[in-house]
Design a protein around this nucleic acid. Structure first.
Lengths: 232, 232
DNA sequence: CTCCAAAGGTATGTCAGCGAGCCATTGGCG
DNA sequence: CGCCAATGGCTCGCTGACATACCTTTGGAG
């Protein structure tokens, strides 16, 4: 009993070395669609400052992304590092240590975010942003769906106004996406998913927290049972 | 809009250097009551392994705790590093950058945890553990209340069976406790708090998720408005 | 057409943190 | 009574990461 709490508190202070964590972050930005294909990453110097890491480390991380064709770099003014169109799947050799863990945290965070977002008075810019992400997700092709979907869910987290919550959702989503990437994405699921998104966003924009939570819960339960089914 | 998501993703990869983060973790274990006064911390070698940090770094962290009278070390077999009774308050020079942020995340995590815990079928050991923590909190003196309170809330998180959620709750609590430490702890609040704890635990043990969430939400709203009141 | 700002590319000296090993102390076990 | 296992205490060389500085490329502004 006591021991479990100690496990949580005495977990490793570092998830990996600076290089690995930097790669992880850049991957997140790309996989979650925060920087879309064709768009430019912040400059190396900028990234180094923001990530609290030396430029050398940022460059090593970017190099590793280049070698896997995630990005391309161009020199000169108005150059930079650009996200490629085709995103190769990483090797699937994943260990599904604790699906329950990942799904539990996701449900808590995202239903909570939906409720909190609905309970806030959103500005016009935020409302427009949410509708835009919804539209993007609903018109996305199968290939770009996961990315657009993540952008929408991230936008909901952002709408809570809590940076820490947004960061937590991003991490959680990354973890669950790694699992989702190993199972097929089917058209019917996609249509169903879009309908649910519609309900969630409507509830949030209407300022109905209970309904937003409920809609998000149903949405997440869908993919959760899909996952559990495929990964028995 | 897009920029806010980038802020979350391109946040610093390291919260501080290894030494600082190690101190932070050990402080958490003590302040949250995971290792109670008089009890022994894991051995330096053990901590180094678990925290993923060199023994040298662990020792530096422990030394810094010794200098502030948080712990004492004894050599020899059956020696170790022991938590002191009196816990000096740290200097209060805190910057309340974003109370909203901390409180939003806490509410999401802890109401979610209460609901998830109530939705699970708990083993006898877990049920006993929850009752024990409840009892400890309800009989705690003012001096030890915050610690016992945190232990109870952590136990609820543990009861979800999600390590990631437990870790997230621990971090969030630490953040909020830093704020709470700057305002007085009054007897009436304490009694009220105990009554709410009772409701929360009862709901969880009865397997009533909606009620557990509701009770936890009310409980948290209490301290939240208290905080907002004091820190206007 | 020239200049230059802003981006990626490169090199170097410094230091925190690590690994590994050894020492010193202590109290129970044989 | 002596041994010895487990703990804290200490040292030293190695490596990853950093800060800083400079070089190269590029395309728009003047």
């Amino acid at each position: 009993m006591m021991e479990h709490a100690q496990e949580a508190l005495f977990r490793p202070v570092r998830a990996g070395n600076a290089f690995e964590e930097t790669v992880e972050r850049l991957m997140q930005a790309i996989r979650l669609g925060v920087v879309a294909p064709g768009e430019r990453l912040p400059s190396e110097r900028d990234l180094a400052t923001r990530l609290g890491v030396s430029r050398v480390t940022v460059r090593e991380a970017i190099r590793s992304l280049q070698e896997n064709d995630y990005v391309e770099s161009r020199r000169g003014r108005y150059g930079g590092t650009f996200v490629n169109e085709v995103i190769p799947k990483p090797a699937p050799g994943k260990e599904f240590g604790d699906i329950h863990d990942a799904l539990t945290l996701r449900k808590v965070l995202e239903t909570g975010a939906a409720e909190a977002a609905a309970g806030r008075s959103l500005g016009p810019a935020e409302r427009r942003g949410l509708r835009a992400r919804l539209e993007e997700a609903s018109t996305a092709s199968v290939g770009e769906y996961r990315r657009k979907d993540s952008r929408l869910h991230l936008a909901i987290a952002e709408a809570t106004g809590s940076a820490a919550l947004t960061a937590a959702v991003a991490d959680s989503r990354m973890r669950v996406n790694e699992l989702l990437d190993t199972i097929p994405l089917l058209e019917p699921n996609l249509a169903h998913s879009n309908a649910q998104h519609e309900r969630i966003i409507t509830s949030i924009l209407d300022g109905d927290p209970a309904s937003a939570r409920q809609a998000m819960a149903e949405h997440l339960d869908g993919t959760a049972s899909l996952l559990r089914g495929f990964l028995v």
